[in-house]
Design a protein around this nucleic acid. Structure first.
Lengths: 202, 202, 202, 202
DNA sequence: AATGAATGAGCCTTCATTCAT
DNA sequence: TATGAATGAAGGCTCATTCAT
């Protein structure tokens, strides 16, 4: 149908424009933070006029929300992709290297810090992070349970606690990238892997 | 002497005013972040006119720097106070409870997130955090070494890596307070303690 | 073409807005001086919001520069127009009356004083005045040379000196308008004309 | 009397402090202009606290007025001193060199420009300049009359006009120092002297 | 869909002036 | 006489947002 072949590209185009704005905004937010980045800078980075951005987003806050939403999905997807098929502790250990690298990559974590800072004052943003975290926990629960098939089952609370500890390790390491730029990846990796095993199986 | 009792309070008074501003600024920054908090709000919180703040600080950035500086000192002092006399792994384990509580206390960590976010774009702020971290590492090195008196010595790099991991745990846990408000302290504490021991002694 | 009649006005419109700001600024600067005139007063005089002025000028200093630039061009153009075709001493003498009237017109010279005062501390402004002055000298050189066709040629330095003297007369007279408001144009004009002739031909 | 010997020095001291402020203010005004110079900068230059300046002057405007007043007196005194005894055209010619040098000295004229600019908007300041100018005219009248003892007497208006022209020359030359920094004193002086003679005696 | 002109509130900062000591 | 702490009113400038085209 002509309507179909004409409409779909239009819908796609609009969605593409939206993504174009989000990419530009993410870049600006990374460089300047949510508040210091101006709509003008985002428009420039997106190659579009300031006014036109308001066709796709109600206001700056909506862009921030969309960014946070997308970023959380991206992070979950990365984890999913890494551990999908296998979903075992061996996979977790094996991929710790990639996880460590990601944690230490400032271009990954800069937006994350912005989100955490924002969430610490904005309950709506906090809820977004929490929703994402619930999925992460669901995922971690599986891995831990599988990894302990030969050991006594854990209480739900204990399982969650261990899960929190592992996530904390990676989140905390992303903060290290800033406070300790001389952090030695090669020295940290084995210790990190040992620690993960210990958390899961002790 | 009267000179003494008259002069000293004057010196103190100026310093007191400065602290008054810093306290007010810290409160505002916690609530709104470095950039969204206005000088007017800080002045109001400090019970002083906007203009007068500029007698004590050259500009807003100077206030931010002073806050960061003070906050880093506070954190180091807390650690020092906790572990000073003993400086052993037992003390570390014992005080993990307090450390965990501090990490999970948003009123402690909100400013910390602000600092990290700021440091991820502002090299001067980053340097302040790094200087503070160097002291922390010096301290951690001692504890780890003492805790391993019966074990083979570690290379400097390995020691540092373990130190980074332990700090990461606490930093990461402070992020948990936001992403997982239902985090169960009682369940986390023993796992955390076990993990610290493992990191230090494995 | 419709494109033509639609596009050109747009270009002109922006330029018109710019001129609108400059006219408003000139009026405000005349009344209050460069520093005492506020952006708010300029915006009001230009019938436009404060913020919008910054679409046309980077900052207040840029407005001042543009005003100075335009004012210098205006002055050179007036002189050009007066003496263009003829370029003789007779024209100079004849137009001395207009020149005197211009010098004594405070609405002309108020901005000039502002510029001189500014130039005496701001090297960039000084350079603008000096560039304009060089053109003026080029022009004066021609007139003096032509006026002395029957007399021995002057050294470059002597020619310049005489040129400076004539300009000084007019500039100085503009200061008289303030220090001596009772100055009698009718009495000054013949003496001024005699003096110009003497400076050129003695 | 002890009262006398105690009071007089006090009065002198107060007057000295006043002058100290004026000197400091003159320096600041020269560098930054009346409006851009802050009371704080004046206080610092005067080696005294900001608040104390208000014991000697009601407000900043009073300082400006006092500066203008003093500056005008200074200038008249200089002229008086130069031409006092002789009061002849020969003296005028002879001292033209010093007059030219003074005119071209920016440290002399910077305050003058500030005054003129201020007078062009502030009637009170204008009146001060005009009062000073009246004295100057009185003085010039004498010189011109004496110089023309062998020539027909001039009408009051003609005499004033010539006086204005001579003053204009020097005022205008002070503007040259800014618009034409390459002005050649040696070339200008003889032309200036010839012109003065011509104005007085033609 | 797309532009960018236009607004106005609000921000950081400065400064003349006052006042307690 | 002398200080400098304290105020509050502007000032220049930015920026999210709207709207006519």
């Amino acid at each position: 149908m002509s309507a179909n072949s004409a409409d779909l590209p239009d819908i796609d185009k609009a969605e593409l424009r939206r993504l174009q704005v989000l990419d530009a905004a993410a870049a600006c937010f990374r460089l300047a933070g949510f508040h210091a980045a101006s709509m003008a800078s985002i428009a420039k980075a997106a190659g579009m006029s300031v006014g036109h951005i308001y066709h796709y987003f109600a206001n700056k806050e909506a862009i921030i929300s969309a960014i946070i939403d997308r970023e959380q999905h991206k992070q979950l997807q990365v984890i999913h992709m890494l551990l999908r098929a296998e979903n075992t502790i061996e996979a977790l250990i094996e991929h710790a290297e990639q996880g460590l690298a990601d944690s230490l990559d400032l271009s990954n974590s800069a937006l994350n810090f912005e989100m955490i800072a924002e969430a610490s004052r904005n309950p709506k943003v906090a809820e977004m992070l929490q929703a994402s975290n619930r999925v992460l926990h669901e995922f971690g629960k599986d891995i831990i349970t599988k990894a302990r098939v030969d050991l006594p089952a854990l209480s739900e609370e204990d399982n969650n606690a261990r899960c929190d500890l592992i996530i904390s390790l990676f989140d905390g390491l992303s903060m290290r990238a800033i406070s300790n730029p001389r952090l030695n990846t090669q020295a940290v990796l084995p210790a990190l892997q040992r620690t993960i095993v210990q958390i899961v199986r002790s």
